[in-house]
Design a protein around this nucleic acid. Structure first.
Lengths: 234, 234
DNA sequence: TGATCTCCGTGACAAAAGTCATCGCCACCC
DNA sequence: GGGTGGCGATGACTTTTGTCACGGAGATCA
C-alpha cells in the first residue's frame, strides 16, 4: 500500500488551488480531506452524477471523458498529482459535466463542497486561484474544439505525437523516440476518432518515412516533416 | 444614438456576476466602467491579444469565435445583454483565447482588470459568481466538443433548429415556424461545418418532409421526426 | 500445450464531409 | 435599365472518416 499512501498535507500544499495558504489554513483543509484509493479503470464519478465535493489528485492519473450512446469516448483531459477535479460543479451546483476514471492506481483527496466554499469565502485568494485553474481548463477545451472543428485525424495524431515528443521524447541517433502511453483505442479517444484510423495514420506516417514504429514505441525520424503535417491544413 | 445609449447602473445590476452587490458597491463599479459602442461585425478583440479587462454586454450581441488558417470559423458562443466576456484571461493573466466581434450594433461596458480583481478580493461572493458564470461557459464548451466528436452535421443542424424552435418558435397551423437568425455561412460556423452542407442538409430535411423552407424561415412540420434525427447516431 | 483474450493491422466498403464551379435570385446602386 | 455583389442551391467530384470482418501476434492461464 505504500505506493498509494500519501502525505495529505504535502499534496495539498503542492496543489495550485491551495498554494499560498498559511500553515493553519492548510491544516484546516488537511483535517477535512478524505483520501480514497482507486484501481486502474475504476470510475470516480459518472457524467450527470450529483456533485458533493471536489477532488485533488494525490497520486496516479485521472481521465476525464465524455461517452457517446454509440460507445465512443472523447477524452477531455488527463490529470496528474496536484490537479483538482470538478471545481466547476462545486460552484454552480450542477451535476458533473463529464465522467472521471482512474488511469492507473490512484489516490484522491476528497473535500466536501461546504468545506471548500467556506474556505473560498474566508480566503478570497483561493477563489482567484480556482479561477485560474478553471481558466486553464477552459483554454484546453477551446483547443480541443479548435482541433476537432478545423483539422483532420492525421493532423491531430501528428500533433499528439509532437506533444509527447516534447514532453517525454528520448533523443536517439535515428531521431526522437516516444513510448506510446496507451493502446490505439485510448489514443483514438484522446484525438476524437476510432482505433482503426489511429492505426492507419501511424502506418501512413511510417510509409512516408516520417517515423518508424517499433512495437509501442515510435521513433520520429523527421521532426520537421511531422510539424509540416501539422501546419498544412491547420 | 438612443438605441445604444444605456443606463450603466441598470445593466451592471442585471449582470449575473454583479447580482447581489450593495448599492454602494455597484456605484463603485459604475464609476469605473467605460462604455464603448460597436457596429455590426466590428471586432472587439482578437484571439491572442493581451487582455486588459473585462466586458459586460449592455446592448446587442457578441460573437465569440475561433478562426482557422484556412479561413473557417467556429463560433463558441453568442452572448447578449448581461453577459460578461473574457472573465478567464482577466484572472489567469493570459491572452484572449478567442476573438470577439459585435453581431449587431452593440454597447459594451469595459472594466479594467485591476478594478475587477480588487472587487473580487473585497467581495468574495463576486468571485464565486464569476466561477458560476465560467462554469456555465465550460459546460457549453464541453457540449460543443461532444457534438463535434460524436455527431454528424445533420445531427448538429437538427439540434440547432430544435434549440431555435424552443427559444423563439412560433406555433402555426402547419407546425413551428423559426426565422433563421443568420445566413448559412454563419449557421455553418456555429455548428462547425461549411455553408454548402448547411444548405444541403436543410434541403434534405425538406425532402424528407420534416420541414418546409420558405426563404429565411423554416416551418418544422414534424417535430418528433426532427428529434429522432437528433437521437439517432447520438 | 492448447484455449482464450486483448490488441494491432488491414482490406473492402459505405457514409459523411468538404471542394469547386455554376446558376439563379434579389437587392442595391449608379 | 443594366451592372454588381451577396447569397442560396446544387451537381460533380475528391477526400476523409467510419464500419465490419478477419487474421495474426503475443500474453496469460489452466
Amino acid at each position: 500500500m505504500q505506493d498509494t499512501a500519501v502525505n495529505t498535507a504535502q499534496v495539498l500544499a503542492q496543489a495550485p488551488i491551495f498554494s499560498g495558504l498559511s500553515e493553519d489554513e492548510l491544516r484546516f483543509m488537511v483535517q477535512r480531506a478524505v483520501s480514497r484509493h482507486f484501481s486502474p479503470g475504476e470510475i470516480v464519478f459518472g457524467e450527470g452524477d450529483p456533485c458533493s465535493g471536489l477532488y485533488v489528485v494525490a497520486a496516479g492519473h485521472l481521465r476525464i471523458y465524455k461517452s457517446s450512446a454509440a460507445g465512443r469516448e472523447q477524452v477531455l483531459s488527463i490529470d496528474g498529482p496536484g490537479s483538482s477535479i470538478a471545481e466547476v460543479p462545486v460552484f454552480d451546483g450542477g451535476n458533473y459535466p463529464a465522467s472521471a476514471a482512474a488511469v492507473d492506481r490512484a489516490t484522491l483527496l476528497f473535500i466536501s463542497k461546504q468545506d471548500f466554499q467556506a474556505l473560498c469565502l474566508a480566503h478570497p485568494q483561493v477563489a482567484l486561484k480556482v479561477l485560474r485553474v478553471v481558466g486553464a481548463r477552459l483554454r484546453q477545451l477551446v483547443g480541443i474544439i479548435e482541433e476537432l472543428s478545423f483539422t483532420t485525424v492525421r493532423h491531430r495524431l501528428a500533433s499528439l505525437l509532437l506533444r509527447l515528443a516534447q514532453k517525454e521524447g528520448q533523443r536517439t541517433t535515428e531521431g526522437v523516440e516516444v513510448k506510446l502511453p496507451a493502446n490505439n483505442q485510448e489514443l483514438a479517444s484522446q484525438i476524437g476518432t476510432v482505433r482503426e484510423l489511429v492505426s492507419r495514420n501511424l502506418s501512413r506516417f511510417q510509409a512516408e518515412g516520417l517515423l518508424r514504429i517499433d512495437g509501442r514505441s515510435v521513433i520520429i525520424r523527421d521532426l520537421e516533416g511531422l510539424e509540416a503535417a501539422v501546419e498544412s491544413s491547420a
